[in-house]
């Protein structure tokens, strides 16, 4: 089984509410604060993007479902700060030390924001496994879809694609494997492919016979036919 965030194909969610393109970027001031706080805390260097995604996914299903988007972010951030030893539970109770933190020298300064955001964090790597599949080749997404490396661990293979027949559309090069990187097991770069699936392969009642879904999948998520 997988986790509550893996919701592709789920029934029962009701209509999408598009709103207007003129809506403000942040609906509430605290949304902006939550985003900025998460980015700035990430710059302390105590976790990577896969660890932070997994922290959100590990919110209990009840919290994940009832929390709004930025509530998930801020709550997972608090959990991560304690898990990684940056803060203590007493700190969250506002009963901790107010002394300067050993990591304070790493705090992101206003003048470095533009550079940090502009640099980003590329996920492609030179080394790692050689490509096993070529463009056009038929492959099958593995079953089961949950992490093969760590029980209950992070993975990016959605459940709806597990076991489905697809075709290699494009090789993106070698990329950091989230299943490993989210658990401190190293970057373990693998070939990453865009894989095309016919909608009829994924859903019992596809809307149109020619529709397709493309997923980016790592080599270890795929097996040859």
């Amino acid at each position: 089984m997988t986790r509550v965030h893996d919701m592709g194909g789920r029934f029962g969610d009701g209509p999408v509410e598009p709103g207007s393109e003129d809506d403000p970027v942040f609906a509430e001031e605290w949304h902006a604060r939550a985003l900025a706080l998460t980015l700035a805390a990430g710059a302390l260097g105590q976790w990577n993007i896969d660890i932070s995604r997994h922290a959100r996914e590990r919110l209990s299903p009840k919290d994940y479902t009832r929390f709004s988007y930025y509530e998930k972010w801020i709550s997972a951030l608090a959990d991560l700060l304690v898990e990684r030893g940056v803060l203590t539970e007493d700190d969250l109770r506002e009963a901790g030390s107010a002394e300067k933190h050993p990591l304070a020298d790493r705090a992101m300064k206003a003048e470095s924001v533009a550079g940090v955001l502009a640099r980003g964090g590329p996920a492609d790597r030179e080394g790692g496994l050689k490509p096993r599949f070529s463009t056009g080749q038929a492959v099958r997404a593995v079953v089961p879809s949950d992490s093969a490396l760590v029980a209950g661990g992070h993975t990016r293979l959605p459940r709806y694609a597990a076991g489905a027949l697809g075709y290699i559309l494009r090789l993106h090069g070698n990329h950091v494997l989230p299943d490993s990187n989210a658990h401190g097991l190293g970057e373990a770069p693998e070939p990453l492919y865009a894989v095309k699936f016919h909608a009829r392969e994924l859903w019992a009642h596809p809307e149109h016979p020619d529709d397709e879904v493309v997923l980016d999948l790592w080599q270890s998520y795929l097996e040859p036919i």
């Binding site: 706080l37 805390a41 107010a98 206003a110």
Partner: peptide, 22 residues
């Protein structure tokens, strides 16, 4: 959000001006 920002700022882990910039 406010509570977490306050805690992190007090310890020098966050510069509120950097948040404004982001």
């Amino acid at each position: 959000v406010k509570a977490l920002e306050t805690i992190l700022t007090r310890k020098g882990l966050i510069d509120p001006a950097a948040l404004d910039e982001i």
